[in-house]
Simulated scan of single mutants.
Amino acid sequence: MLLTDTHTHLYYETDNTKLDGLIQRCRENSIHRLFLPNVDATSVPKVYALTEAYPDMCFPMLGLHPCDVKAGWEQELDEIKSFHNQHKIYAIGEIGIDLYWDKTTLDIQIQAFRKQIAWAKLLKLPIVIHCRDAFDQVFEVLQQEQGEDLRGIFHCFTGTVEQAEQVVALGFYLGIGGVVTYKNSGLDKVVEQVDLKHIVLETDSPYLTPVPYRGKPNESSYLIYVAQKVADLHQTDLETVATTTTENSKKVFGV
């Protein structure tokens, strides 16, 4: 069995002994592919260091997180772009719009989002979208930018069935994580209506820890609980979910 965590910040762990443990537990749970989004310029070296330490498992992405889009964001994005030739990357992300923390930066978040979509198109790479309390704004940008060269993942999707259908119609995959295991999230009702061919799995570790470890720091090895929940919702087995979602991730990332 082969599971893929399409979104993990595993590099936040700086203790090498603990990091080795995190990786070992991934292997024990059949999670052998980890996709790492940075968030700002300072996090890129950490992403690359983890990729170099575990080249058989870790795949880097580059982007400027919407929560880090502030005054001077153009310079920060240029710095992030300067890392591009140091290591092969597999997506531009995570990028998008976040109106949960700060609504005042919406205009520059949209500017940064568009600029990074253009970068992804130039490099012929997928995008990994962060969208929090901003589905309409994100979707408006995507509709304006849509085309054969625009593809990717709606990271941490927690929307409605209708929104899921809109995402799928644009050719994007739904990134499903620990929220699907939460009793009152309602995401389970959505996921059971979405064909597995439109789903990829993620943890967003160390955040959004699935049941039974909710309330504790998340880690990529806990992806097994997300996968099992999706299997239960689709009345199928874990192997089927692992195979289908990993194949979906290969279609997105090209590896």
Score class of each variant (00 low, 15 high):
residue 57 M to P: 08
residue 87 H to P: 04
residue 30 S to N: 14
residue 54 Y to E: 01
residue 137 Q to P: 01
residue 71 A to C: 07
residue 68 D to R: 07
residue 30 S to I: 02
residue 32 H to D: 15
residue 91 A to Y: 01
residue 27 R to F: 12
residue 117 I to D: 11
residue 119 W to E: 13
residue 64 L to T: 01
residue 134 A to Q: 05
residue 67 C to W: 08
residue 25 R to F: 00
residue 55 P to Y: 01
residue 71 A to I: 08
residue 100 Y to C: 02
residue 118 A to H: 02
residue 53 A to Y: 00
residue 65 H to I: 00
residue 139 F to I: 02
residue 86 Q to E: 14
residue 132 R to H: 02
residue 28 E to R: 06
residue 73 W to C: 13
residue 32 H to N: 15
residue 22 L to G: 06
residue 47 V to S: 12
residue 63 G to N: 07
residue 26 C to P: 07
residue 67 C to P: 03
residue 90 Y to K: 04
residue 114 R to W: 02
residue 85 N to H: 10
residue 119 W to V: 05
residue 121 K to Q: 09
residue 132 R to Q: 05
residue 81 K to C: 14
residue 36 L to H: 03
residue 135 F to A: 07
residue 88 K to E: 13
residue 88 K to C: 11
residue 77 L to C: 11
residue 67 C to M: 15
residue 31 I to A: 10
residue 72 G to N: 09
residue 93 G to W: 07
residue 54 Y to R: 08
residue 75 Q to M: 09
residue 34 L to A: 05
residue 81 K to A: 15
residue 22 L to F: 06
residue 68 D to A: 07
residue 37 P to S: 09
residue 25 R to P: 04
residue 19 L to A: 08
residue 138 V to W: 01
residue 87 H to R: 14
residue 82 S to P: 07
residue 81 K to Q: 15
residue 74 E to D: 14
residue 76 E to M: 14
residue 36 L to T: 05
residue 88 K to H: 07
